[in-house]
Design a protein around this nucleic acid. Structure first.
Lengths: 198, 198
DNA sequence: TGCATATCTGAACAAGTGTTCATGTGAAAG
DNA sequence: CTTTCACATGAACACTTGTTCAGATATGCA
């Protein structure tokens, strides 16, 4: 097929996405206008509609991409066989992933309620699939007597909350290096689920 | 002074606040219009301005009230002398408070970026004061050799994230009674900071 | 060179935004 | 009963919203 005539879309398309991510993350979906996005790209409003059917489409794309990348990156992650090792891998991965993508992570966390019901359903499914990966680790470790967890479901939510919280304050080049932040979070998670030192 | 002539404000005022809380929590500050709030109260838009100088004032009031009530309720809470007991008191208090006020808690967490800079400064100050209360407990327990914390600042954020997360899924009349939810969270916090069983 | 067409502009649309204010209304005070 | 004024109405203000589209532009191909 090759490139079509007069095509800029492979340049402008990503820039539209990037502008949407930055502005949605900073001001929130509802507070950002299509005109602001267009201005950030350096284009008129109408041009945006070559790259998205509507404003909602921008948000849906961002969320879908974020959650798919999250899940696929986790699947690609090298994982030990034992639940403790897996939990360490998960903890470190989750911290690292979110710290390096604060914008899309923020959007995925905050803008769920701005999705239309059917879009919400789809995105929520992706989120739960990832959550399920953690829950399975905790479940297996609990059954194998490696963890001391009172309630696996609740522990899943708590661990996720603890790990996700890091994105709210971590800044690159801050007081602590990423490796240290990873390690400390893993230590806290390990303690919280009652796993002995590795 | 007594009540003034033709006064409904002591009825309508709180209803405006309540409507704002409910709608902001459900749809987000930026997505809610003054007309929606007025409709929920059963009044015309203009009437709202008898109770707030502007839309921003509604948000500021909600946040100020939430954070002041949070801090004052914590101060009024009975607290043991030892850091471990204090951390348990804090954990249980924080869970209980947020689970019983999911709406204002949600707003206080999500809508910080919709405050004007000077309002943000004020509200952020209140938030930090509360955060400081937890940090002081962790610091004291760490210095007394009761906790095993690698980094007090990071641990403060992590504990707060873990405990605040509960409001995102807990529903009254759900699978677990509140007392159980409190207890499990306290156990996880205790483990995470390396405090022995009480 | 000129054709085809992907991409962008610029203007327009109807609807919705926060806020203001002259006017109306009804309950309490005298 | 009359006066007073807190409170509410309803319309208007200037502006912004998401979206559409006819027409201009500019790029790659023949």
């Amino acid at each position: 097929m090759a490139r079509k005539a007069g095509s800029h879309s492979e340049i402008t398309g990503p820039r539209v996405q990037a502008a949407a991510v930055e502005l949605f993350a900073r001001h929130g979906y509802a507070a950002v206008s299509m005109r602001q996005i267009a201005a950030q790209v350096g284009v008129q409003v109408g041009a945006l509609y070559n790259y998205t059917p509507d404003k909602q489409g921008l948000l849906l794309d961002i969320m879908n991409r974020h959650l798919n990348e999250l899940f696929e990156a986790w699947q690609a992650e090298p994982k030990p066989d034992d639940p403790i090792g897996q939990l360490e891998a998960f903890s470190r991965f989750h911290v690292r992933f979110h710290v390096t993508r604060p914008d899309t992570m923020f959007i995925a966390q905050m803008e769920l309620r701005n999705l239309t019901p059917e879009n919400f359903e789809a995105v929520e499914g992706l989120r739960r699939r990832y959550e399920g990966a953690l829950e399975a680790i905790l479940q297996e470790g609990q059954e194998g007597g490696l963890f001391r967890i009172t309630d696996v479901r609740l522990a899943t939510m708590a661990v996720l909350a603890l790990l996700t919280g890091v994105a709210n304050w971590y800044r690159e080049g801050g007081r602590l290096p990423l490796e240290e932040v990873e390690r400390i979070h893993w230590e806290m998670v390990r303690s919280a689920v009652g796993a002995g030192a590795s």
